[in-house]
Structure formats: structure tokens, C-alpha cells
Computed example of a mutant assay.
Amino acid sequence: MALRKIKLLEPQNPNHSTGIVNGEASGIVNWNDIPYPQFYDIYKNLRSNFWIPDEISMAKDIKSWGELGDDEQEAFKRIIGLLSILDSVQTNLIQRASGYVTDPSVHAILAEISSQEAVHNQSYSYVLSSIVPLEEQNRIFDMARNDPEVMKRNQLILDIYDEFDENPTPKTLAKALVGSIILEGINFYSGFAFFYNLARQQKMVGTSTMISYIQKDEMQHGHFVAMLLRALLAERPDIDADGSFTEYVYETIDKAVQLEIRWSHEVLTGLEGIDLEEMDGYIKYIANKRLRQLGLDDLYEGYTDNVMPWIRTYSDEAMNDTKTDFFEQKSREYAKVSEDNGFDDL
């Protein structure tokens, strides 16, 4: 079944959406009358995260940049280039997906997420403009799209997003949401760890502060997308009627983890303070957390604790690890969600 693209306003329909996709809704956002009250909490949390790059002083980073080794500078440039691609792609995906989502409250949240992704891209330009000349800034952004390892690393997500863009159905949307969780919740994390590692050596502390703001945003984005996917699957149990979608989630996250490990070895080998074996474990730990957000079991046995606890000094993940068998829920059960019994109580 194809997804129906929504109209800007359908006043004959109720304000209270009858479904995440292919439902009926006027297009008017009334936060006091939405199907999933928790979404309002997400919206308020996203709004409270508001920040702008110019608030962060880069004065010390300008001096610190000259003190980095050549290998550190190269890794810095490649990771900034990678992050700029991911946030650019995510901005576009969120906007395109929004056109097929019936629920106006979800529209409002996706608009906020898309805006924040654009700010993240602004942040990378802001950092580079503080430490290198314009010609080098442009080269770094060009380097990202011409780096075969970067593109190989991103192809999994691009293929998932392209499948949805070319054939928008409930199932391809569900796949795109899985891709979004991977992008927001796994693909950024070895890069974030690199900047935090510099900061614990008192290097590029301004950049690390900005990255911590970005990570806080991405945590909220991933949390909401997981909630949205759970809602979609509960409303459309046909997507996973035979259990194949659950298997797809496991297989796709495993592919993403292997790509992330390969990338981290490509860009972080030999850097002071980086233990690649620990990084591999950290990536698997993060992937297990994402699966728990989706109510699924860990994929990687033994990776239940953060093997790089020093990262908590810079950014502590405060996500709920409770396992929920939401894939088995029916939409009639899902309707029991209220402000008092959140998603993890189902």
C-alpha cells in the first residue's frame, strides 16, 4: 500500500489524527488533543535545547588547533566532513518523510528536528571558519563527498532513504526510521568520541562543547524516532506480521555497526588516547542501547556497560534502557498509552 501525501489543510477532518500515516487529520496542531501525549513532552524538550553556534567561544581552539599533530588535524577534518554529510542528509530525509505523516503533532516535532539538523551543519562551518582559511574550509566539505571511505560508510543509510523516497509505503517508511535511528544514534558516536578525547587532553575544548550540544539534540531525535517507529508498528502490525521486520532491524543495525567499526579504524588508528578495541566495544554498547529503545534484545552479548566511561564527563546518555516487547503490541493495546503509563509500560 502506497503512502498518501498529505494536503496542507483538510478542514473537514478532525484535529485529532486517526493514524500516523494514511489517517485523517485537519492539519491543525492542538497539543491538548493528540493521539500520543508523550509527543508533547518530546516537543517541549526539543524546544528547551535551543542554542546557536555563535554562543560558543572558539578563542582557545584557534590556539589549540596549531598544537594538534598532523594526524589529529587530519582526523578532525575528515570527521567534520563526515558529520556535515550526515546532518545534511538527515535534514532532507526528515522534510520528505513529514509530507506523508498524517499526525500534525509529528509534523511539528519533525520541523524542530530538521531545524536543529540545519543548525548542526552551521556549527561545523562555524568551527572551521574559526581555525582554517575559507579555501581550506571548502576543501574539507568537498573532501567529504569525494572520500571513498566516507561514502562507503554512508551508503547503507543512503540506500534505505532512497528506497523510501522512490517508493513511499508504510514499510519503507519504517525502514527509513530504522535508518534514522542508526544515523542519529550510532553513526555519530565514534566521531563524537574523537572530539571528547581531544577535550580530555585539554585540546579543542570549544569544539567539544559544541559537539556535546549536538549530541544532546541527537539523543532526543533518536529517542523520538524510536517512539514514532513503535507507534507506526503498533498501528500497522502488518509491517512485522511474519517477524521479518524484526530480523531486518537486527541485520541492518549489525551492518551499521560493522561499517562504523571499519570507519573508526580508518580514521582513528594511532591517535593518542584512542583504544580501538575499546571503541569497538563502545559502538556495540551503543547499538545495544538503540535496540533496547525499540524494545528488542541486545544483539551483542556482554556489551551492556559503557567500556569508555570517561565519555560520561562530556556527555552522559540518559536514555531509558527498559526492554519493551512493542513489536508484539496491537494498536488497541497501544491506545492505552497516556501521560501516566509511558511507552515503556506497554
Rank of each mutant, 00 (worst) to 15 (best):
R145V: 14
I182L: 06
F194M: 09
T209A: 08
Q220V: 07
D142Q: 12
G191R: 01
A199R: 06
D147V: 06
V178N: 04
I160H: 03
F141V: 09
M143Q: 13
K171P: 01
N146K: 15
T207S: 15
E184D: 12
T207W: 05
E166M: 07
N197L: 04
N197D: 12
A199K: 08
A174T: 00
Y213I: 07
M204P: 04
A199D: 06
F192N: 09
V205G: 00
I186V: 12
A174V: 00
Y196I: 00
V205A: 05
K152N: 15
A144C: 10
D165P: 01
A176C: 06
T169F: 10
M143Y: 03
Q220R: 07
G222D: 08
F164C: 02
G191I: 04
N187S: 15
K152C: 11
P168W: 03
L183K: 07
S190F: 07
P168V: 07
V150L: 08
N154R: 12
I214R: 01
A199Q: 05
F195S: 04
I186E: 05
L158W: 09
S208Q: 10
Y213S: 14
R145A: 12
V150H: 05
D217H: 07
N187Y: 15
A193G: 02
L183G: 08
N154Y: 13
A176S: 15
K175G: 03
M143C: 09
Q220W: 06
P168N: 07
R139S: 15
M219A: 15
S180P: 07
Q155L: 10
M219H: 12
M204R: 03
R145K: 14
S190Q: 11
F188T: 07
K152L: 13
Y161Q: 14
I160Y: 03
D159W: 04
F192I: 11
I140Y: 10
F164W: 00
T209F: 06
L183Y: 04
M204L: 05
N146Y: 12
D162T: 14
G222R: 05
I160W: 02
D142K: 05
D142C: 08
I140T: 11
G206S: 08
G206V: 03
